[in-house]
């Protein structure tokens, strides 16, 4: 009852502050979309915050004619491949780490969790060295391997916390029925840890999808270029054709926007992953 009274006095200051950040958030996005619809020559004369007098999709056509779909495909390939590998190896490891209960498994878990504190950026030089030595420089595999490696600690942490909550009786009854470890993993652990796998999958997909630094140092050909890196190279390639550069930026956000519209709740919980607790 008393709560209702508080609710009824509107929080004007809060609403105003909230509105200020709405403006701060919206203006760059509004500018981005609007500019991408301008003619190149109009960009230099029109007011950037007013809708284009003569809107056009020329910029988008130019971007699509310049291999955008190939870069999109590369990004999709490394994202899907990384996520599949991350989920598979992390789930297998988590089953072992939770159910083995040996000094070895406890030590292994501690070692893996140590990885949570490794700043990825600081390891680019040895990663570059390794990838070159393995003959993988300038391939998509070069982007998948480090992405998977650095994803393992947080993925294992989240999945382990989930598998731990599966009642021991379920494991015991499956074993009593003669099921081997592979069968327990597929028929019991996999279905029961689906929410954790979804969270980890979304979180890591976004990490890989948005990754810029590893593609920058581990690839150079346009045949293996991924989306974030392509935006940067478009900027050099299109130079003064700003509408085209910004059309590429707009297009690059569409897949995530689609994901946001389809599964907003899952995306948000995936984003904050293990940190939300």
């Amino acid at each position: 009852m008393s709560r209702r009274r508080i609710r009824e006095t509107p929080n004007v200051l809060g609403a105003l502050g909230g509105l200020v950040w709405v403006v701060v958030t919206i203006v760059p996005v509004y500018y981005l979309v609007l500019t991408s619809l301008r003619r190149q020559q109009d960009y230099f004369v029109e007011n950037p915050l007013l809708p284009p007098a003569d809107p056009t999709l020329d910029a988008y056509r130019l971007v699509l004619e310049n291999d955008f779909l190939r870069y999109l495909g590369n990004s999709l390939v490394i994202t899907v491949a990384s996520v599949v590998v991350i989920l598979t190896v992390s789930l297998m490891a988590s089953y072992y780490l939770v159910r083995a209960g040996t000094p070895l498994s406890r030590g292994t878990l501690r070692l893996v969790l140590l990885g949570l504190a490794i700043p990825v950026q600081a390891t680019i030089i040895p990663v570059y060295y390794l990838i070159v030595r393995l003959g993988l420089y300038d391939t998509l595999v070069a982007l998948i391997l480090p992405a998977v490696a650095f994803a393992i600690p947080i993925s294992v942490l989240i999945i382990v916390n989930f598998v731990r909550d599966i009642p021991a009786e379920l494991f015991e009854s499956m074993h009593a029925d003669g099921a081997g470890h592979g069968r327990v993993l597929v028929a019991l652990v996999l279905p029961l840890s689906r929410p954790a796998l979804l969270t980890v999958g979304i979180y890591q997909a976004l990490q890989v999808w948005n990754g810029f630094l590893f593609p920058l140092i581990l690839t150079q050909s346009s045949s293996v270029r991924v989306l974030p890196l392509s935006l940067w190279t478009y900027q050099g390639q299109f130079a003064v054709n700003v509408p085209a550069v910004l059309a590429a930026v707009t297009l690059s956000a569409l897949p995530v926007l689609a994901a946001f519209i389809v599964g907003r709740r899952q995306l948000v919980s995936g984003l904050t992953a293990g940190f939300g607790k």
Binding site: T123, V127, V148
Partner: peptide, 28 residues
């Protein structure tokens, strides 16, 4: 309990491309 090899793929990937580079950067 589950055999150790289940954790092996994750450990190898993590060891080679995350842990080893951390040591490697100090050496380099």
């Amino acid at each position: 309990g589950p055999p150790f090899w289940l954790a092996l793929p994750a450990l190898v990937l993590f060891g080679c491309f995350a842990l080893l580079p951390l040591v490697g950067v100090a050496v380099l």
